[in-house]
Structure formats: structure tokens, C-alpha cells
Amino acid sequence: MSDELSAQATPTDQGYEGALRPATLDEFVGQAKVRKQMGLLLNAAAMRNHTPDHILLAGPPGLGKTTLSMIVAAEVGKPLHQTSGPAIQHAGDLAAVLSALTPGEVLFIDEIHRMARSAEEMLYLAMEDFKVDIMVGKGAGATSVPLELAPFTLVGATTRAGLLPNPLRDRFGFTAHLEFYSDDELTSVVTRASGLLGFEVSETGLEEIARRSRGTPRIANRLLRRVRDYSLVHDTPGDTAAVRAALALYDVDDHGLDRLDREVLRAVVERFEGGPVGLSTLAVSVGEEAETIEAVVEPFLVRAGLLTRTPRGRVATRLGWEHIGLRPV
């Protein structure tokens, strides 16, 4: 193993991994319109010396919603408190979180659409008036005690904006819809990441990684790390051949489909003769959760033109048939 590759496997490598997240809006690659909109919102709040409006980040997984929440906190110079919708199953859980916030703090709730309904209703008043009502006691003797909250900025993230109730969605001052990345944008993402990781990859190798990353920066960074591991173990440079060999080892094909993507596509084509097939039936046939297929697999297959969604179910397109080596019947 060469000294250069051995030097990459150092204790400080974890620091580089954490540094892959951009720290400012200027460093954030892609989502140009969203960055301009957020920059305007944050700059205006700073000029007025006010807490920024609440922000809702909507889009598929891996596009940078958590990173943007960290950037919001960094831009306003306030702490970030992170939690998630599934962790807030009672109004008391939310009250505990809100009461602990300091003035101007940024509260990030990931998968906000999965909060309990009672917590959602408490959040309405907290977002508008920065106070909540706490019920003390039970039965006829129960009383409502108002609790004043420090002004805060809520950043909510969701992969399924349609599941948010209208009263909650309307209370966000700004809703950002994140889009999949282009190959050029993903090339910029992995170019930056390779520099932070201290791993040199050829230009064509970086483009190959970007092309197979399904329009998602999280996947691009993950594939880059696997290529780095392959080069380290096999003592090879980060050229196009190493990229292709590493991605083949991890079952990522030329179009970016992984094992589960191909299983879903093959199930539609071979088991259900191209469809239509319902989501629950499809999930059972591949042994995966329906939510995973709907939120993770389908968006890319539909965007790539390999699958379509109809009122009767999922249907493979001509490109979908051809991708697995068959002709439409």
C-alpha cells in the first residue's frame, strides 16, 4: 500500500467527513433559487434585527435540508436545536423542547409531518405568538397555564409536504421546494468533497460518480467515499477505471440504480407483466416497506423515465423494460 493512500486513513479523517457539509449559503452547491430566497429572508431579518420567519424545507431525502437548517443557524449566529417528528409524540414533548429554547435559537424538526396531532396544534400558537398553554391537573380541576416562549425560528423539513395540515403549513413564512441536482452540480459537489477528503479523483471519474448519483448529493458523497475505500484497499489511483470497479462492486449500475431499484423495476416487469401494480403489493413482492419504495425508490425511477404512476398502480415504461434487458409485451 502506498504511503500516499496510507496517509488518508488517519484519525483526522473523521474531521474531513464532518466538513463535507457546507457551512454557508455561498458554499452550498445547487438549489440556486432557494439559496437566493433564503439569503434575502435572512439578510432582511438581520437588517431589521428580528428573528427570521419560520422556514419549511420540502423535498426528497438527501438534497440538503438538514444542511440548510445548520446554515440558517450559522447565518443568524444562534444555536441550533435538532429533533424529529417521530420523537414528538405528545404535546408535553414539544412543550419541553420549546421551553428550553434560548432567544433567537433555531429549532430544526426533521420529518415534521410525522409529529403527533396534539403537538401540531400546540405548535400553531407557539409559531405565531411564541407561547403555549400547558394543562395542569386532570378532569374538572384541570387549568390552562400560559407559558411565554423566547422568540425562535422553526425550520421544518419534510419529504411529504402533502401530509402537513394546512394550518401548520400556512404558518411558515417561507417554503423552499428542493429539486434534484443536475450532473454538473453533482460534479461540483464531489469535486469539493474530494478535496476535503484529500482524495484525488480524475475529472472523468468525478463525472462518472455524479452521473450515477441519482441527482442526490448525499448519494454522491457516499459513492465518493466508497471509491476512496476501493482505491485505498487496492492501491490504485482514483481514475475512471477505479470508479467503475468500485461502483460495480457496490451494485450501482450505469444509470445509478442500486439493488433495490432494480428489484422493484424487475418485479413490475417480470412478476406483474409491466403493471399496473399497487404499492402495497409491490412492497410485499420485494420484501420492503411501502414507505421506503414510495419515498426513496419511486421518485428516481419516475424521474429517470423507467416507471410511471397511474391511478391503477405502477407501470413500467419502455425504457424500464429495456433497462433490464427485455422488450415490452
Rank of each mutant, 00 (worst) to 15 (best):
T12K: 15
R222A: 07
D110R: 09
T66C: 05
S188V: 03
E298N: 15
P79M: 00
A7I: 07
T83L: 10
S231I: 02
V72L: 11
G313A: 08
E298T: 15
G195I: 03
E105P: 00
T51W: 14
V106I: 10
F172K: 12
L319H: 02
A116E: 03
P103Q: 01
R160W: 09
Y230L: 09
V72H: 10
G256I: 04
L279F: 08
E17Q: 15
Q14M: 07
V284W: 12
D110G: 08
D184N: 04
S188D: 05
E288Q: 15
D170H: 00
L125C: 08
H50M: 09
Q82M: 10
A283N: 14
P103T: 00
A245R: 09
G198R: 07
A248P: 05
A157F: 10
H54M: 13
P146S: 12
E200N: 10
Q37V: 09
T24G: 07
D93M: 06
D261A: 13
A44F: 09
G278H: 03
E203A: 14
G195Q: 05
R160M: 11
R218M: 05
L301N: 07
A316M: 11
V29Q: 05
E120T: 07
V252Y: 07
P237Q: 06
D184S: 08
N49M: 10
E185F: 00
R211Y: 00
L5H: 11
A176G: 14
E105Q: 01
H323C: 01
K131M: 05
T191N: 06
Y230N: 03
L63D: 00
H50I: 13
A316C: 10
L306C: 11
G59Q: 14
V233F: 09
R114K: 14
H255C: 12
A19I: 06
A32W: 08
G104E: 02
N49A: 12
N49T: 08
E185P: 02
P146M: 06
A176L: 13
L265E: 05
M1H: 12
R225E: 03
G215I: 09
F28H: 00
T236C: 06
V286M: 08
R160E: 15
L326Y: 04
G62H: 04
Q37R: 12
L98S: 01
E200C: 05
L232A: 15
P311E: 03
T10G: 11
L94F: 12
D239Y: 01
G137K: 09
A116M: 04
T67Q: 01
K36W: 10
A9G: 15
I134P: 04
P237C: 04
T308L: 05
A245E: 01
P61E: 01
A295P: 08
V302H: 04
E17A: 15
Y16R: 14
G325W: 01
H81M: 10
L260A: 07
F174S: 09
I55Y: 03
V315Q: 07
S2T: 14
T175Q: 07
V302M: 02
